[in-house]
Design a protein around this nucleic acid. Structure first.
Lengths: 252, 252
DNA sequence: GTAATTTTGTGACCGATTGTAACAGCCCGA
DNA sequence: TCGGGCTGTTACAATCGGTCACAAAATTAC
Protein backbone atom coordinates (compact mmCIF):
# COMPACT_ATOMS: atom_id res chain seq x y z
CA UNK A 1 0.00 0.00 0.00
CA UNK A 2 1.26 3.41 -1.01
CA UNK A 3 0.79 6.55 0.98
CA UNK A 4 -0.73 9.46 -0.83
CA UNK A 5 1.77 11.85 -2.20
CA UNK A 6 1.98 14.64 -4.69
CA UNK A 7 5.29 15.07 -6.31
CA UNK A 8 6.83 18.07 -7.93
CA UNK A 9 9.52 17.89 -10.55
CA UNK A 10 11.86 20.41 -9.02
CA UNK A 11 15.41 19.39 -9.89
CA UNK A 12 14.57 16.85 -12.57
CA UNK A 13 15.75 17.96 -15.97
CA UNK A 14 12.91 17.82 -18.45
CA UNK A 15 15.11 18.40 -21.47
CA UNK A 16 16.52 14.87 -21.65
CA UNK A 17 13.09 13.72 -22.69
CA UNK A 18 12.63 16.19 -25.49
CA UNK A 19 16.14 15.87 -26.89
CA UNK A 20 17.06 12.23 -26.42
CA UNK A 21 14.32 9.78 -27.43
CA UNK A 22 16.14 6.60 -26.37
CA UNK A 23 18.62 7.43 -23.62
CA UNK A 24 17.89 7.20 -19.89
CA UNK A 25 14.19 6.65 -19.16
CA UNK A 26 12.63 9.42 -17.13
CA UNK A 27 9.29 9.76 -15.42
CA UNK A 28 8.23 11.98 -18.32
CA UNK A 29 8.88 9.31 -20.94
CA UNK A 30 6.81 6.91 -18.88
CA UNK A 31 3.75 9.11 -19.31
CA UNK A 32 4.47 10.43 -22.80
CA UNK A 33 2.60 7.60 -24.53
CA UNK A 34 -0.59 8.16 -22.60
CA UNK A 35 -3.46 10.19 -24.00
CA UNK A 36 -3.85 13.74 -22.74
CA UNK A 37 -7.06 14.42 -20.81
CA UNK A 38 -8.54 17.84 -20.27
CA UNK A 39 -10.15 19.08 -17.05
CA UNK A 40 -11.94 22.40 -16.89
CA UNK A 41 -11.25 24.71 -13.95
CA UNK A 42 -13.21 23.66 -10.88
CA UNK A 43 -13.44 20.02 -11.99
CA UNK A 44 -12.25 17.27 -9.66
CA UNK A 45 -9.74 14.74 -10.98
CA UNK A 46 -10.41 12.47 -8.02
CA UNK A 47 -11.92 12.74 -4.55
CA UNK A 48 -10.59 11.95 -1.14
CA UNK A 49 -11.62 8.39 -0.38
CA UNK A 50 -11.88 7.26 -4.01
CA UNK A 51 -10.06 4.01 -4.85
CA UNK A 52 -6.55 5.07 -5.82
CA UNK A 53 -6.61 3.67 -9.34
CA UNK A 54 -4.27 5.97 -11.23
CA UNK A 55 -1.24 8.20 -11.12
CA UNK A 56 -1.27 11.45 -13.11
CA UNK A 57 1.28 13.70 -14.72
CA UNK A 58 0.35 17.33 -15.16
CA UNK A 59 1.01 18.52 -18.71
CA UNK A 60 -0.58 21.94 -18.46
CA UNK A 61 -2.49 23.99 -15.91
CA UNK A 62 -2.59 24.16 -12.12
CA UNK A 63 -4.42 21.97 -9.60
CA UNK A 64 -5.21 22.26 -5.95
CA UNK A 65 -4.96 19.31 -3.61
CA UNK A 66 -7.01 19.54 -0.41
CA UNK A 67 -8.75 17.91 2.51
CA UNK A 68 -12.08 18.92 3.95
CA UNK A 69 -12.72 18.80 7.68
CA UNK A 70 -16.14 19.17 9.23
CA UNK A 71 -18.52 21.89 8.08
CA UNK A 72 -16.66 23.51 5.25
CA UNK A 73 -13.23 23.91 6.73
CA UNK A 74 -10.83 23.23 3.87
CA UNK A 75 -7.06 22.85 3.92
CA UNK A 76 -5.16 23.01 0.65
CA UNK A 77 -2.00 20.96 1.15
CA UNK A 78 -0.47 21.95 -2.15
CA UNK A 79 -0.75 23.30 -5.68
CA UNK A 80 0.32 21.08 -8.55
CA UNK A 81 2.10 22.50 -11.58
CA UNK A 82 3.08 21.13 -15.01
CA UNK A 83 5.68 18.40 -14.71
CA UNK A 84 4.46 17.35 -11.28
CA UNK A 85 3.02 13.94 -10.47
CA UNK A 86 -0.32 13.56 -8.76
CA UNK A 87 -1.79 10.66 -6.81
CA UNK A 88 1.34 8.60 -6.25
CA UNK A 89 0.30 6.42 -3.39
CA UNK A 90 0.70 3.06 -1.67
CA UNK A 91 -2.72 3.39 -0.07
CA UNK A 92 -5.82 1.87 -1.61
CA UNK A 93 -7.70 5.17 -1.49
CA UNK A 94 -6.72 8.73 -2.29
CA UNK A 95 -6.07 10.74 0.85
CA UNK A 96 -7.17 14.04 -0.65
CA UNK A 97 -9.21 15.61 -3.40
CA UNK A 98 -7.50 16.97 -6.51
CA UNK A 99 -9.28 19.72 -8.39
CA UNK A 100 -8.30 21.75 -11.44
CA UNK A 101 -7.74 25.43 -10.67
CA UNK A 102 -7.31 26.40 -14.30
CA UNK A 103 -8.11 24.30 -17.35
CA UNK A 104 -5.71 21.42 -17.01
CA UNK A 105 -4.23 18.72 -19.21
CA UNK A 106 -3.17 15.43 -17.63
CA UNK A 107 -1.76 12.05 -18.59
CA UNK A 108 -2.97 9.03 -16.67
CA UNK A 109 -1.26 5.79 -15.69
CA UNK A 110 -2.68 2.72 -13.93
CA UNK A 111 -1.41 2.58 -10.38
CA UNK A 112 -0.33 -1.06 -10.46
CA UNK A 113 1.39 -0.67 -13.79
CA UNK A 114 3.08 2.48 -12.55
CA UNK A 115 4.40 0.67 -9.50
CA UNK A 116 5.69 -2.17 -11.65
CA UNK A 117 7.48 0.21 -13.98
CA UNK A 118 9.08 1.97 -11.06
CA UNK A 119 10.10 -1.25 -9.38
CA UNK A 120 11.70 -2.66 -12.49
CA UNK A 121 13.62 0.43 -13.47
CA UNK A 122 16.79 1.31 -11.57
CA UNK A 123 16.75 4.67 -13.36
CA UNK A 124 13.19 5.64 -12.51
CA UNK A 125 13.30 4.63 -8.86
CA UNK A 126 15.70 7.31 -7.65
CA UNK A 127 13.79 9.90 -9.65
CA UNK A 128 10.57 9.03 -7.89
CA UNK A 129 12.37 8.90 -4.59
CA UNK A 130 13.86 12.32 -5.11
CA UNK A 131 10.43 13.76 -5.83
CA UNK A 132 9.01 12.14 -2.74
CA UNK A 133 11.78 13.64 -0.67
CA UNK A 134 11.32 17.08 -2.18
CA UNK A 135 7.64 16.84 -1.43
CA UNK A 136 8.41 15.94 2.16
CA UNK A 137 10.73 18.91 2.50
CA UNK A 138 8.02 21.18 1.11
CA UNK A 139 5.52 19.73 3.57
CA UNK A 140 7.87 20.53 6.44
CA UNK A 141 8.32 24.10 5.23
CA UNK A 142 4.56 24.39 5.10
CA UNK A 143 4.32 23.15 8.69
CA UNK A 144 6.75 25.89 9.72
CA UNK A 145 4.66 28.46 7.87
CA UNK A 146 1.40 27.32 9.44
CA UNK A 147 2.77 26.85 12.94
CA UNK A 148 4.77 30.02 13.47
CA UNK A 149 4.51 32.58 10.73
CA UNK A 150 2.38 35.76 10.81
CA UNK A 151 -0.18 36.59 8.15
CA UNK A 152 2.27 38.85 6.34
CA UNK A 153 5.03 36.24 6.43
CA UNK A 154 2.64 33.62 5.07
CA UNK A 155 1.51 35.69 2.12
CA UNK A 156 5.09 36.73 1.33
CA UNK A 157 6.19 33.09 1.53
CA UNK A 158 3.38 32.06 -0.78
CA UNK A 159 4.35 34.62 -3.39
CA UNK A 160 7.95 33.40 -3.30
CA UNK A 161 6.89 29.77 -3.56
CA UNK A 162 4.83 30.23 -6.70
CA UNK A 163 7.34 32.69 -8.15
CA UNK A 164 10.00 29.99 -7.92
CA UNK A 165 7.70 27.38 -9.39
CA UNK A 166 7.00 29.51 -12.41
CA UNK A 167 10.56 30.46 -13.20
CA UNK A 168 12.05 26.98 -13.48
CA UNK A 169 12.59 26.82 -9.75
CA UNK A 170 15.51 29.24 -9.63
CA UNK A 171 15.41 33.03 -9.19
CA UNK A 172 11.88 34.34 -8.98
CA UNK A 173 10.40 35.86 -12.11
CA UNK A 174 9.41 39.54 -11.99
CA UNK A 175 5.75 38.90 -12.85
CA UNK A 176 3.95 36.26 -10.81
CA UNK A 177 0.81 34.67 -12.21
CA UNK A 178 -1.65 33.79 -9.45
CA UNK A 179 -4.27 31.56 -11.07
CA UNK A 180 -5.89 30.61 -7.76
CA UNK A 181 -8.54 32.64 -5.96
CA UNK A 182 -8.11 34.43 -2.63
CA UNK A 183 -10.03 31.62 -1.01
CA UNK A 184 -7.50 29.12 -2.36
CA UNK A 185 -4.67 31.22 -0.99
CA UNK A 186 -6.45 31.54 2.35
CA UNK A 187 -7.04 27.80 2.63
CA UNK A 188 -3.44 27.12 1.69
CA UNK A 189 -2.05 29.63 4.18
CA UNK A 190 -4.43 28.90 7.06
CA UNK A 191 -5.97 32.40 6.90
CA UNK A 192 -9.26 33.98 5.81
CA UNK A 193 -9.86 35.68 2.49
CA UNK A 194 -10.16 39.03 4.25
CA UNK A 195 -6.75 38.70 5.85
CA UNK A 196 -5.21 37.64 2.55
CA UNK A 197 -6.84 40.60 0.85
CA UNK A 198 -5.69 43.07 3.48
CA UNK A 199 -2.17 41.68 3.50
CA UNK A 200 -1.89 41.85 -0.28
CA UNK A 201 -3.07 45.48 -0.14
CA UNK A 202 -0.45 46.16 2.51
CA UNK A 203 2.32 44.62 0.40
CA UNK A 204 1.23 46.74 -2.55
CA UNK A 205 1.07 49.87 -0.41
CA UNK A 206 4.60 49.27 0.85
CA UNK A 207 5.85 48.93 -2.72
CA UNK A 208 7.07 45.36 -2.36
CA UNK A 209 4.75 44.17 -5.12
CA UNK A 210 2.57 45.91 -7.68
CA UNK A 211 -0.79 44.68 -8.98
CA UNK A 212 -0.68 43.42 -12.55
CA UNK A 213 -4.24 42.65 -13.50
CA UNK A 214 -6.39 40.65 -11.13
CA UNK A 215 -4.49 37.39 -11.13
CA UNK A 216 -0.89 38.50 -11.29
CA UNK A 217 1.55 40.79 -9.47
CA UNK A 218 4.96 42.24 -10.22
CA UNK A 219 7.65 41.77 -7.63
CA UNK A 220 9.31 45.14 -7.10
CA UNK A 221 11.51 44.39 -4.10
CA UNK A 222 12.46 40.72 -4.13
CA UNK A 223 14.87 41.08 -1.24
CA UNK A 224 12.27 42.78 0.92
CA UNK A 225 9.77 40.07 0.03
CA UNK A 226 12.19 37.32 1.06
CA UNK A 227 12.85 39.22 4.27
CA UNK A 228 9.14 39.51 5.02
CA UNK A 229 8.77 35.81 4.31
CA UNK A 230 11.16 35.09 7.16
CA UNK A 231 13.97 33.63 5.06
CA UNK A 232 16.65 35.84 6.52
CA UNK A 233 18.10 33.43 9.03
CA UNK A 234 20.52 31.46 6.89
CA UNK A 235 23.62 32.61 8.73
CA UNK A 236 22.61 30.69 11.81
CA UNK A 237 22.14 27.52 9.86
CA UNK A 238 25.52 27.71 8.17
CA UNK A 239 27.16 28.33 11.51
CA UNK A 240 25.38 25.29 12.84
CA UNK A 241 26.61 23.06 10.05
CA UNK A 242 30.16 24.32 10.40
CA UNK A 243 30.22 23.84 14.14
CA UNK A 244 31.68 20.36 14.30
CA UNK A 245 31.77 20.45 18.07
CA UNK A 246 28.04 20.03 18.29
CA UNK A 247 27.97 17.27 15.73
CA UNK A 248 27.35 13.77 17.00
CA UNK A 249 30.39 11.50 16.84
CA UNK A 250 30.41 8.06 15.34
CA UNK A 251 31.83 5.55 17.81
CA UNK A 252 31.84 2.59 15.40
CA UNK B 1 20.09 13.49 -3.49
CA UNK B 2 17.60 12.44 -0.87
CA UNK B 3 15.12 14.69 0.81
CA UNK B 4 15.06 14.71 4.56
CA UNK B 5 12.53 12.43 6.04
CA UNK B 6 11.69 10.83 9.30
CA UNK B 7 9.98 7.54 9.07
CA UNK B 8 7.74 5.76 11.48
CA UNK B 9 7.20 2.06 11.50
CA UNK B 10 3.41 2.08 11.61
CA UNK B 11 2.14 -0.95 9.74
CA UNK B 12 5.43 -2.82 9.49
CA UNK B 13 5.39 -5.99 11.55
CA UNK B 14 8.33 -6.08 13.88
CA UNK B 15 7.81 -9.67 14.88
CA UNK B 16 9.29 -11.19 11.72
CA UNK B 17 12.65 -9.93 12.86
CA UNK B 18 12.51 -11.44 16.33
CA UNK B 19 11.02 -14.77 15.27
CA UNK B 20 12.58 -15.53 11.91
CA UNK B 21 16.34 -14.96 11.81
CA UNK B 22 16.81 -15.76 8.11
CA UNK B 23 13.57 -15.15 6.26
CA UNK B 24 12.61 -11.89 4.57
CA UNK B 25 15.04 -9.08 5.39
CA UNK B 26 13.42 -6.15 7.15
CA UNK B 27 14.63 -2.68 7.94
CA UNK B 28 15.12 -3.88 11.51
CA UNK B 29 17.51 -6.66 10.53
CA UNK B 30 19.51 -4.14 8.55
CA UNK B 31 20.27 -2.20 11.71
CA UNK B 32 20.44 -5.10 14.14
CA UNK B 33 24.19 -5.62 13.67
CA UNK B 34 25.07 -2.04 14.46
CA UNK B 35 26.22 -0.97 17.90
CA UNK B 36 23.67 0.74 20.13
CA UNK B 37 24.49 4.34 21.01
CA UNK B 38 23.04 6.19 23.96
CA UNK B 39 21.93 9.83 23.96
CA UNK B 40 20.88 11.57 27.16
CA UNK B 41 17.74 13.70 27.14
CA UNK B 42 18.39 17.12 25.64
CA UNK B 43 21.31 15.89 23.54
CA UNK B 44 21.32 16.50 19.78
CA UNK B 45 21.86 13.53 17.47
CA UNK B 46 22.50 15.89 14.55
CA UNK B 47 21.82 19.49 13.64
CA UNK B 48 20.01 21.13 10.78
CA UNK B 49 22.63 21.83 8.13
CA UNK B 50 25.05 19.10 9.22
CA UNK B 51 26.30 16.85 6.42
CA UNK B 52 23.78 14.01 6.23
CA UNK B 53 26.20 11.19 6.96
CA UNK B 54 24.01 8.60 8.69
CA UNK B 55 20.60 7.08 9.03
CA UNK B 56 19.39 6.05 12.49
CA UNK B 57 16.99 3.53 13.92
CA UNK B 58 15.46 4.31 17.29
CA UNK B 59 15.78 1.37 19.68
CA UNK B 60 14.53 3.07 22.82
CA UNK B 61 13.36 6.52 23.91
CA UNK B 62 11.73 9.47 22.18
CA UNK B 63 13.26 12.21 20.04
CA UNK B 64 12.03 15.55 18.74
CA UNK B 65 12.76 16.72 15.23
CA UNK B 66 12.58 20.47 14.67
CA UNK B 67 13.50 23.55 12.70
CA UNK B 68 14.39 26.92 14.13
CA UNK B 69 13.30 30.13 12.45
CA UNK B 70 14.59 33.55 13.39
CA UNK B 71 14.89 34.58 17.05
CA UNK B 72 13.85 31.48 18.91
CA UNK B 73 10.75 30.47 17.01
CA UNK B 74 10.87 26.70 16.91
CA UNK B 75 8.67 24.26 15.02
CA UNK B 76 8.72 20.60 15.98
CA UNK B 77 7.79 18.66 12.85
CA UNK B 78 7.57 15.32 14.60
CA UNK B 79 8.37 13.06 17.51
CA UNK B 80 10.31 9.86 16.83
CA UNK B 81 9.52 6.64 18.68
CA UNK B 82 11.21 3.22 18.94
CA UNK B 83 11.14 1.39 15.62
CA UNK B 84 11.15 4.64 13.63
CA UNK B 85 13.92 5.66 11.27
CA UNK B 86 15.61 9.03 11.52
CA UNK B 87 17.57 11.03 8.96
CA UNK B 88 16.63 9.16 5.80
CA UNK B 89 17.48 11.68 3.14
CA UNK B 90 18.65 12.22 -0.41
CA UNK B 91 19.94 15.66 0.48
CA UNK B 92 23.56 16.26 1.41
CA UNK B 93 22.63 18.03 4.63
CA UNK B 94 20.07 17.30 7.31
CA UNK B 95 17.04 19.55 6.97
CA UNK B 96 16.29 19.60 10.67
CA UNK B 97 17.76 19.05 14.11
CA UNK B 98 17.11 15.79 15.98
CA UNK B 99 17.30 15.91 19.76
CA UNK B 100 16.66 13.28 22.41
CA UNK B 101 13.63 14.04 24.57
CA UNK B 102 14.27 11.16 26.94
CA UNK B 103 17.41 9.05 27.22
CA UNK B 104 17.55 7.37 23.86
CA UNK B 105 19.24 4.37 22.28
CA UNK B 106 19.99 4.41 18.56
CA UNK B 107 21.64 2.29 15.90
CA UNK B 108 23.53 4.08 13.16
CA UNK B 109 24.07 3.27 9.50
CA UNK B 110 26.20 5.08 6.90
CA UNK B 111 23.97 6.93 4.49
CA UNK B 112 25.64 5.65 1.30
CA UNK B 113 25.68 2.08 2.54
CA UNK B 114 22.06 2.39 3.61
CA UNK B 115 21.06 3.59 0.15
CA UNK B 116 22.97 0.73 -1.46
CA UNK B 117 21.28 -1.83 0.76
CA UNK B 118 17.88 -0.38 -0.06
CA UNK B 119 18.60 -0.22 -3.77
CA UNK B 120 19.77 -3.81 -3.96
CA UNK B 121 16.98 -5.33 -1.92
CA UNK B 122 13.58 -5.77 -3.55
CA UNK B 123 12.21 -6.62 -0.10
CA UNK B 124 13.54 -3.56 1.71
CA UNK B 125 12.57 -1.01 -0.92
CA UNK B 126 8.79 -1.24 -0.52
CA UNK B 127 9.20 -1.15 3.25
CA UNK B 128 11.09 2.10 3.07
CA UNK B 129 8.62 3.43 0.55
CA UNK B 130 5.70 2.56 2.77
CA UNK B 131 7.30 4.43 5.66
CA UNK B 132 7.93 7.44 3.49
CA UNK B 133 4.32 7.44 2.42
CA UNK B 134 3.06 7.10 5.97
CA UNK B 135 5.27 9.97 6.97
CA UNK B 136 3.84 12.06 4.16
CA UNK B 137 0.30 11.26 5.27
CA UNK B 138 1.18 12.27 8.82
CA UNK B 139 2.67 15.53 7.55
CA UNK B 140 -0.55 16.32 5.73
CA UNK B 141 -2.61 15.62 8.84
CA UNK B 142 -0.31 17.96 10.71
CA UNK B 143 -0.89 20.66 8.09
CA UNK B 144 -4.63 20.27 8.61
CA UNK B 145 -4.13 20.58 12.36
CA UNK B 146 -1.97 23.68 12.10
CA UNK B 147 -4.04 25.40 9.43
CA UNK B 148 -7.57 24.98 10.69
CA UNK B 149 -7.88 23.42 14.13
CA UNK B 150 -8.54 25.30 17.37
CA UNK B 151 -6.31 25.03 20.40
CA UNK B 152 -8.58 22.44 21.99
CA UNK B 153 -8.72 20.35 18.81
CA UNK B 154 -4.95 20.47 18.51
CA UNK B 155 -4.29 19.28 22.03
CA UNK B 156 -6.91 16.54 21.71
CA UNK B 157 -5.38 15.46 18.40
CA UNK B 158 -1.95 15.38 19.96
CA UNK B 159 -3.10 13.16 22.80
CA UNK B 160 -4.68 10.75 20.33
CA UNK B 161 -1.57 10.69 18.16
CA UNK B 162 0.78 9.71 20.94
CA UNK B 163 -1.79 7.36 22.48
CA UNK B 164 -1.89 5.45 19.20
CA UNK B 165 1.88 5.43 18.93
CA UNK B 166 2.25 3.92 22.35
CA UNK B 167 -0.31 1.18 21.98
CA UNK B 168 1.09 -0.50 18.89
CA UNK B 169 -0.72 1.94 16.64
CA UNK B 170 -4.21 0.55 17.19
CA UNK B 171 -6.75 1.45 19.90
CA UNK B 172 -5.42 4.10 22.23
CA UNK B 173 -4.09 2.91 25.59
CA UNK B 174 -5.84 4.17 28.71
CA UNK B 175 -2.73 5.76 30.19
CA UNK B 176 -0.74 8.06 27.93
CA UNK B 177 2.87 8.78 28.76
CA UNK B 178 3.86 12.30 27.74
CA UNK B 179 7.65 12.42 27.96
CA UNK B 180 7.90 15.82 26.24
CA UNK B 181 7.56 19.18 28.00
CA UNK B 182 4.73 21.69 27.49
CA UNK B 183 7.10 23.72 25.35
CA UNK B 184 7.63 20.70 23.08
CA UNK B 185 3.89 20.25 22.81
CA UNK B 186 3.41 23.95 22.10
CA UNK B 187 6.07 24.00 19.38
CA UNK B 188 4.56 20.88 17.83
CA UNK B 189 1.01 22.25 17.89
CA UNK B 190 1.80 25.82 16.91
CA UNK B 191 0.61 27.19 20.28
CA UNK B 192 2.17 28.72 23.37
CA UNK B 193 2.89 26.83 26.58
CA UNK B 194 0.20 28.82 28.37
CA UNK B 195 -2.46 27.83 25.87
CA UNK B 196 -1.37 24.19 26.08
CA UNK B 197 -1.51 24.39 29.86
CA UNK B 198 -4.92 26.02 29.91
CA UNK B 199 -6.32 23.56 27.40
CA UNK B 200 -5.01 20.56 29.32
CA UNK B 201 -6.60 21.96 32.46
CA UNK B 202 -9.86 22.38 30.57
CA UNK B 203 -9.77 18.78 29.32
CA UNK B 204 -9.15 17.60 32.86
CA UNK B 205 -11.97 19.76 34.24
CA UNK B 206 -14.38 18.36 31.67
CA UNK B 207 -13.46 14.83 32.68
CA UNK B 208 -12.11 13.78 29.28
CA UNK B 209 -8.71 13.02 30.74
CA UNK B 210 -7.32 12.73 34.27
CA UNK B 211 -3.82 13.71 35.38
CA UNK B 212 -1.60 10.75 36.15
CA UNK B 213 1.59 12.12 37.56
CA UNK B 214 3.37 14.96 35.82
CA UNK B 215 4.12 13.35 32.50
CA UNK B 216 1.14 11.10 31.91
CA UNK B 217 -2.65 11.27 31.70
CA UNK B 218 -5.46 8.74 31.74
CA UNK B 219 -7.99 8.91 28.97
CA UNK B 220 -11.44 8.74 30.56
CA UNK B 221 -13.65 9.49 27.57
CA UNK B 222 -11.91 8.32 24.42
CA UNK B 223 -14.92 9.01 22.21
CA UNK B 224 -15.21 12.56 23.50
CA UNK B 225 -11.51 13.08 22.95
CA UNK B 226 -11.76 11.90 19.34
CA UNK B 227 -14.76 14.18 18.90
CA UNK B 228 -12.87 17.15 20.28
CA UNK B 229 -9.96 16.31 17.98
CA UNK B 230 -12.27 16.83 15.02
CA UNK B 231 -12.25 13.26 13.76
CA UNK B 232 -16.02 12.93 13.56
CA UNK B 233 -16.49 13.60 9.88
CA UNK B 234 -15.87 10.19 8.35
CA UNK B 235 -19.39 9.76 6.98
CA UNK B 236 -18.82 12.49 4.43
CA UNK B 237 -15.67 10.86 3.19
CA UNK B 238 -17.25 7.46 2.69
CA UNK B 239 -20.10 9.04 0.80
CA UNK B 240 -17.57 10.74 -1.42
CA UNK B 241 -15.78 7.50 -2.23
CA UNK B 242 -19.02 5.70 -3.02
CA UNK B 243 -20.28 8.40 -5.30
CA UNK B 244 -18.99 7.09 -8.60
CA UNK B 245 -20.70 9.89 -10.52
CA UNK B 246 -18.13 12.36 -9.38
CA UNK B 247 -15.22 10.08 -10.16
CA UNK B 248 -13.13 10.93 -13.18
CA UNK B 249 -13.55 8.51 -16.08
CA UNK B 250 -10.73 6.85 -17.87
CA UNK B 251 -11.01 7.39 -21.61
CA UNK B 252 -8.10 5.11 -22.57
C1' DG C 1 -25.38 44.47 -23.59
C1' DT C 2 -27.37 44.16 -19.38
C1' DA C 3 -28.44 41.63 -15.25
C1' DA C 4 -27.19 38.14 -12.00
C1' DT C 5 -23.66 35.98 -9.59
C1' DT C 6 -19.25 35.51 -7.90
C1' DT C 7 -15.04 37.32 -6.29
C1' DT C 8 -12.48 40.82 -4.10
C1' DG C 9 -11.65 44.84 -1.16
C1' DT C 10 -12.38 47.62 3.08
C1' DG C 11 -14.01 49.06 7.51
C1' DA C 12 -15.84 48.28 12.30
C1' DC C 13 -16.09 45.21 15.78
C1' DC C 14 -15.21 40.93 18.30
C1' DG C 15 -12.97 37.00 20.23
C1' DA C 16 -9.54 33.44 20.69
C1' DT C 17 -4.99 33.15 21.55
C1' DT C 18 -0.90 35.49 22.99
C1' DG C 19 2.07 38.07 26.09
C1' DT C 20 3.22 39.34 30.59
C1' DA C 21 3.64 38.35 35.12
C1' DA C 22 3.18 36.23 39.49
C1' DC C 23 2.96 32.06 41.76
C1' DA C 24 3.01 27.00 42.77
C1' DG C 25 5.16 22.38 42.36
C1' DC C 26 8.70 19.34 41.37
C1' DC C 27 13.41 17.75 40.81
C1' DC C 28 18.08 17.81 42.10
C1' DG C 29 22.03 18.78 44.56
C1' DA C 30 24.10 20.80 48.68
C1' DT D 1 16.07 18.85 54.80
C1' DC D 2 16.56 22.98 52.67
C1' DG D 3 17.03 26.04 48.97
C1' DG D 4 17.64 27.04 43.73
C1' DG D 5 16.28 26.39 39.25
C1' DC D 6 13.22 24.74 36.09
C1' DT D 7 8.56 23.48 34.60
C1' DG D 8 3.95 24.15 34.85
C1' DT D 9 -0.33 26.82 36.18
C1' DT D 10 -3.35 30.70 36.48
C1' DA D 11 -4.94 35.63 35.88
C1' DC D 12 -5.37 39.70 33.32
C1' DA D 13 -4.43 42.81 29.55
C1' DA D 14 -3.05 43.30 24.68
C1' DT D 15 -3.23 41.93 19.96
C1' DC D 16 -3.66 39.69 15.74
C1' DG D 17 -6.55 37.71 12.90
C1' DG D 18 -11.52 36.39 12.38
C1' DT D 19 -16.35 37.70 11.86
C1' DC D 20 -19.76 40.53 10.03
C1' DA D 21 -21.38 43.87 6.84
C1' DC D 22 -21.35 46.09 2.68
C1' DA D 23 -19.43 48.11 -1.58
C1' DA D 24 -16.90 47.60 -5.84
C1' DA D 25 -15.14 45.01 -9.46
C1' DA D 26 -15.09 41.14 -12.40
C1' DT D 27 -17.03 37.27 -14.45
C1' DT D 28 -20.82 34.75 -16.20
C1' DA D 29 -25.40 34.19 -17.74
C1' DC D 30 -29.07 35.45 -20.42
Amino acid sequence: MFSEITMSQRDVDVSDFADAPRTVPSLQTLFSRQAVEKFEGGTAVFWEGDPASHVFEVVEGVLRVFKIISEGRRVITGFIYPGDLLGVSLKDHYLYTAEAVTTTKLRRFGRTRFQDEINHSPELRPQLFARLCDEMAAAQDQMVLLARKSAEERVASFLLIIARRLSGNRQAAPVIEIPMTRLDMADYLGLTIETVSRTMTKLIASGVIAPCGRHAVTVCKLGKLALLAGEADDEDKHVASADSVRRAVWPN
